[in-house]
Design a protein around this nucleic acid. Structure first.
Length: 665
RNA sequence: GCCUGGGUAGCUCAGUCGGUAGAGCAACGCACUCGUAAUGCGUAGGUCAGGGGUUCGAAUCCCCUCUCAGGCUCCA
């Protein structure tokens, strides 16, 4: 054996090291700064600890704390740190899994004697974690056989279950057992005599490398996500490589809270959820109602241009309709229970519009010459959402979908799908959402109608369209509706969160179940394909996303109150109303606030309502037919702008549905 | 639906050991008439989410229901 090992680095270069060299030794050989920032390594594509020994021929990369991988290692190690703190504070606590999630980590616990974590406990746990950081305990990797592993975790039933389930579920997030050369190896990390955890690794070398963390909240979670299994207590936390990064993250969370549509909806007097009506059922106040109307009017005009025909259907129906459609078989849990009328006939509130649109299609004989037929409706639907699922405007029990169903031939199908995706993206962009990716949801196993052939043809058609849309596509296996696969458009908002917006679903089943037909050029009967699609998804959810995207400061064309006019004194009120009348005659939404309060207070109110333009009119303005403009977001107000100038630029901004306000100089 | 934590005036919140309800903002009224993010004074507003229980006495302790938040599950 040679006294040296030779390894290669990501840049293609090679290094010679002592034969006992580890990843850390390699980092030291490259440079002291790298050694200091190093957390782990990647050897031949596999993440390993810094203490991992190197062999000749290894491809090695050093993972530093500022990389995405480094952050994950930091967070995963912090999860272990938290578990140890919990077991110190609650002797006999059982710990289950503690994986890394997108913005941090969690760990699931079961405390002895049915004890519960409280929010106040989080601080105690954090303090204990800091103590363990100060102790600078090493993370020591050990490898065991399955039998040894089971013995080691004799009092930890969740860990034992993970160990025994190896092979059956080797992808378990936090599972340690791995098949190495045919034998199952159970790897563990020991921090101290008292604390050892099952883990694949890698980890930071010692707890002293951790420290910039915060425990966020405690919540319940079912063991293995199965509601029939015990519910554990989950503690969520986050960790970063530096205090500054941690604080920046916490600031982003506060920013999200500031933008919360539920908070802004109340503050801006847009909508409310009166308890008298029921959970998940919103009422829209005049301002919120105006926003809805503007959204709907624009949508209608686009749909007219897009070749859609407008239809209307009722909110309730006899149960037979949903028997035929399959909803009662597959979607009954999501429906309100029936009401019995007319001597026993069951009527249901509708959870979806599709069966109604099929009946319109079937109302007379259809020719291939008519296809594609595109039926559009703002259709209100009612779904019995679980009480714990209801959330602001984004998850409600009564909502209005901008719903359409396209009936077309098999030959037209792919073309219609392309056209629909382009139509959707164009409309979303008009509302200022520009950063998208597509999600392709496939057959939900065990909860679907139709043959495998139909599903695979539909899925193939959708994936072809998704791939050609020119934006990223991610797969969502099993996420389709019971009648067909779907593409959903996920849009990123101003602070980088993604929201599911539009969906396009391909459906071979509903036309069959309803025996919908058209007469082809061959004078024979054929079955149409149905495409379900909604762009807003629901008007309510879309409004919520817009409110959060714009933090309540909607673009002028969408704002319920576009201009406020404030007379400096009461004797300027006539002029203020004159300017208001001029703007209102052009369709501008204007409010005038008389001088019953000081000017500063009135400006402040208009600003807090996020009005795009606040106009102040005083002596000079009355004399010169001008206004003072205090624009939203502008550093300084502008005095003496001719009314005509302001009106022209404002009307231009509104007519083009500009997302930006014009510059006031 | 399940877990944890909440629900006191329109909003944000205080309310000690169980002794009978409080502030700021908002609203309303009056005065003020002001040039770019809070004028002053006053008035009104609450079956303390609802119901039941314990107690001489409950916002406060116990039980049930409703509802909200954060999760789990689910989803437009």
């Amino acid at each position: 054996m040679s006294p040296h090992v030779t390894v290669s680095l990501p840049d293609g270069s090679t290094r010679e090291l002592d034969e006992t060299a580890t990843v850390l030794d390699l980092a030291k050989a490259i440079g002291p700064r790298l050694a200091k920032a190093a957390l782990a390594g990647v050897v031949n594509g596999r993440e390993v600890d810094l203490s991992h020994p190197l062999a000749t021929g290894d491809q090695v990369a050093v993972v530093t704390e500022t990389s995405a991988e480094g952050r994950e290692i930091l967070r995963h190690s912090t999860a272990h740190l938290m578990a140890q703190a919990v077991t110190r504070l609650w002797p006999g606590a059982r710990y289950a899994i503690g994986p890394v999630i997108s913005d941090g980590f969690y760990y699931d616990f079961e405390l002895p004697d049915d004890q519960r974590f409280s929010e106040a406990d989080l601080e105690r746990i954090e303090a204990e974690m800091r103590a363990i950081v100060a102790e600078d305990q090493p993370f020591v990797r050990e490898e065991h056989s399955v039998a040894e592993g089971l013995a080691l975790f004799g009092d930890q039933p969740f860990k034992q279950e993970i160990i025994t389930s190896v092979g059956a579920d080797a992808t378990e997030v936090d599972a340690a057992p791995e098949e190495v050369g045919g034998a199952v190896v159970v790897s563990t990390y020991r921090n101290s005599e008292a604390f050892i955890d099952l883990c694949r690794g890698p980890h930071v070398p010692s707890t002293g490398r951790l420290g910039h963390f915060k425990l966020m909240r405690v919540a319940g979670a079912y063991w293995r996500g199965d509601e029939k299994r015990p519910q554990l207590q989950r503690i969520y936390g986050t960790a970063f490589e530096s205090k500054a990064e941690l604080e920046a993250h916490l600031f982003r969370l506060e920013e999200a809270e500031r933008r919360d549509h539920r908070k802004l909806g109340a503050e801006l007097d847009l909508f409310s959820f009166p308890e008298e009506i029921g959970s998940g059922l919103a009422v829209f106040h005049p301002r919120g109602g105006t926003i809805r109307r503007l959204m709907e009017e624009y949508s209608r005009s686009r749909h007219l241009e897009g070749g859609y025909q407008f239809v209307n259907t009722p909110h309730i129906t006899k149960g037979d309709l949903f028997q035929t459609s399959g909803h009662l078989q597959w979607f009954a849990d999501g429906m309100f229970p029936p009401m019995e009328l007319d001597g026993g006939t069951q009527y249901y509130l509708k959870p979806m519009n599709c069966p109604f649109h099929v009946l319109i299609f079937k109302s007379r004989q259809r020719s291939y010459r008519e296809l594609p037929l595109r039926f559009f409706e703002f259709g209100s639907v009612y779904r019995y959402e679980l009480s714990g699922a209801v959330h602001g405007l984004t998850r409600v029990r009564g909502m209005t979908q901008d719903d359409a169903h396209i009936f077309c031939t098999r030959e037209q199908m792919v073309g219609e799908l392309h056209r629909t995706v382009a139509f959707i993206l164009d409309l979303l962009r008009a509302f200022g959402l520009t950063d998208f990716y597509l999600e392709l949801s496939t057959k939900p196993e065990g909860k679907a109608v139709g043959t495998d052939e139909e599903w695979s043809e539909a899925t193939a058609a959708l994936s072809e369209v998704a791939a050609e849309a020119g934006i990223d596509v991610v797969l969502d296996p099993g996420g389709g509706a019971f009648y067909g696969p779907k593409i959903s458009v996920q849009a990123k908002d101003a602070i980088g969160r993604t929201h599911q917006m539009s969906t396009v679903q391909l459906d071979f089943q509903t036309p069959q179940r309803f025996e919908a037909e058209y007469v082809g050029a061959d004078n024979a009967r054929h079955r149409p394909i149905m495409i379900h699609r909604a762009l807003f998804g629901s008007v309510e959810r879309f409004m919520a996303v817009l409110i959060e995207h714009y933090a309540g400061a909607l673009p002028t064309w969408l704002h319920p109150e576009q201009v406020a006019i404030l007379p400096v004194r009461d004797d300027h009120a006539d002029y203020a109303h004159e300017v208001a009348a001029l703007l209102m005659s052009k369709g501008v939404r204007v409010v005038v606030e008389g001088a019953s309060e000081p000017l500063g207070a009135r400006i402040r109110k208009a600003k807090m309502d996020k009005l795009p333009y606040v106009l102040v009119v005083g002596d000079d303005d009355v004399a010169n037919q001008t206004v003072g403009i205090n624009a939203r977001g502008a550093a300084d107000p502008m005095r003496g702008v001719a009314v005509e100038d302001f009106a022209t630029r404002l009307l231009e901004e509104i007519a083009t549905r500009s997302l930006e306000q014009f510059e006031v100089r």
